[in-house]
Computed example of a mutant assay.
Amino acid sequence: MQIEITAVKRENQGTGASRRLRRAGKVPGIVYGASKDAVSVEFDHKALFLEFRHEAFHASILTLNLDGKKEQVVLRDYQMHPVRNTIQHIDFQRVSATEKLHVKVPLHFINQDIAPGVKLSGGVVTHILTEADVSCLPKDLPEFIEVDLATLEAGHSIHLSQIKLPKGVEFVQLAHENDAAVASISVPRGGAAAEEETADAPAAE
């Protein structure tokens, strides 16, 4: 999914200037990185929010059109209004084709309904992580990572090391020897015992 956002340079700085921008339907922001000077920018809130609400906006290489010049960026930080659900400030980092990125990527869980722990044991899936830090070159950045639960049994967990990653992508936590659990299946209290009692009971004549 290709996402392009448009910004213009922001001349006025400070809290008062940012407040005036927000009242005018604009979002103050900053763009930095790639050995270039940081630039204060502003966005149209409505146009920005239309893209912001897509999952891919948070874990993809975005095209920033700044005063007619386009460059590749990733979302780095943002602040939301606690009540109005509007973007108060947003930060983007420029990317270099030759430098690895550290980006949080969403996890998509598949085959939960056919997992033995669910289908045979009546277990409940718990998503321990919903996103994970990855390291890769910009060209290899995935929009999401699939976590296949097709073989997961009750009482067991699936860990980062068991997830198949696209070529050129690695989990940052694994590089630091932290093989975190991603999802698990637990059996509701009495569920397994009840099944066993039913299986062991003699057939009625």
Rank of each mutant, 00 (worst) to 15 (best):
S35D: 15
E4N: 10
E4A: 15
A38Y: 11
K104Q: 14
A115S: 09
V118I: 11
M80F: 05
L120G: 05
V187P: 01
H54D: 15
L141G: 02
Q13S: 10
K167M: 14
S161R: 08
K46F: 15
D148M: 10
F171G: 00
V95E: 01
E195C: 04
D140S: 10
Q93Y: 06
A17E: 15
R76V: 03
R20D: 10
E131R: 11
F109K: 02
R94S: 04
Q79H: 00
H156K: 15
N178S: 14
K119V: 00
V118E: 01
A7R: 03
L120F: 06
P166K: 06
E99R: 09
V31T: 07
I90M: 04
D140Q: 08
L62F: 03
G29R: 09
G155F: 02
A17H: 15
A132D: 00
I61H: 07
H102L: 11
H45P: 08
D91A: 08
L48M: 12
A59T: 15
D44T: 13
S60T: 14
A150S: 15
G14I: 12
Q2D: 13
Y32T: 06
L129V: 00
L64E: 01
L66K: 11
I114T: 09
I110Q: 11
V27M: 05
D200S: 11
E55Y: 08
H81I: 06
F144N: 14
V105G: 05
G25A: 01
A150V: 07
I158K: 02
L137A: 07
D148W: 08
A115C: 04
G33C: 07
V182K: 10
A150I: 07
A183G: 03
V31D: 04
G29M: 07
R53G: 12
D91I: 04
E170M: 05
E99W: 08
P116M: 10
A154M: 03
L149M: 05
